[in-house]
Amino acid sequence: MSFRKPGSQAPSGYRRWVKDAAQWVYRRRHIVALNALRGISYAAGTSSVGLIAVWFQSRH
């Protein structure tokens, strides 16, 4: 196992992988945020339609 600095805990390949993954997430953060918002919207819409359907069935 090779280390860049004496006493460091993570191998350099691992550090590079973590850095690349962090950069990938940082570049795509807006896509993640939009997908989360879309999921929340779909869930709220589905719940609303379900509640209206239950309310309507209980009334008629």
Rank of each mutant, 00 (worst) to 15 (best):
A44S: 10
W24V: 09
R4K: 14
A22Y: 00
Q57H: 12
F56P: 00
S47C: 09
M1W: 05
R59E: 15
V18T: 02
G7C: 01
I40E: 09
Y14D: 05
Y14L: 15
A44H: 03
S2V: 14
D20N: 08
G7P: 01
I31A: 02
I52Q: 15
N35A: 13
I40Y: 06
R59G: 07
A22F: 00
V49K: 11
A43H: 03
W24K: 04
R28P: 00
N35G: 06
R4W: 03
R27N: 14
Q23C: 09
K19V: 03
S2G: 09
T46Q: 02
N35F: 10
G39M: 12
F56K: 14
R29E: 03
Q57T: 08
S12C: 08
K19A: 10
K5M: 10
S12W: 07
W24N: 13
A53V: 07
W17C: 01
R59T: 13
Y26S: 14
S58K: 08
S58P: 02
S8E: 14
Q9K: 12
R29C: 04
S58F: 09
W17A: 11
N35L: 15
G45H: 01
A21S: 11
G13R: 02
A21L: 03
Y14T: 12
R16W: 05
S12R: 04
T46K: 03
S47V: 07
S12Q: 12
H60A: 05
R59D: 13
T46R: 08
A53Q: 12
R28C: 04
R15L: 09
G13M: 00
R15S: 02
A21W: 03
V18Q: 07
R28Q: 10
V32W: 11
S8C: 13
R29I: 03
H30M: 06
M1D: 11
R15H: 02
A44I: 02
G50M: 15
S8P: 02
A36T: 10
A53Y: 12
S8L: 04
P11T: 07
G7Q: 01
V49Y: 04
R27H: 07
S8A: 15
L51W: 04
H60I: 05
A44L: 14
P6I: 12
Y26W: 13
Y14W: 12
G13W: 00
W17F: 06
R27A: 13
G45S: 11
A21G: 01
I40N: 08
W24D: 15
W17E: 08
Y26V: 02
Q23E: 15
T46S: 10
G39L: 11
L37C: 05
W55V: 07
V32P: 00
P6W: 12
A36L: 15
D20Q: 11
Y14N: 05
V32F: 13
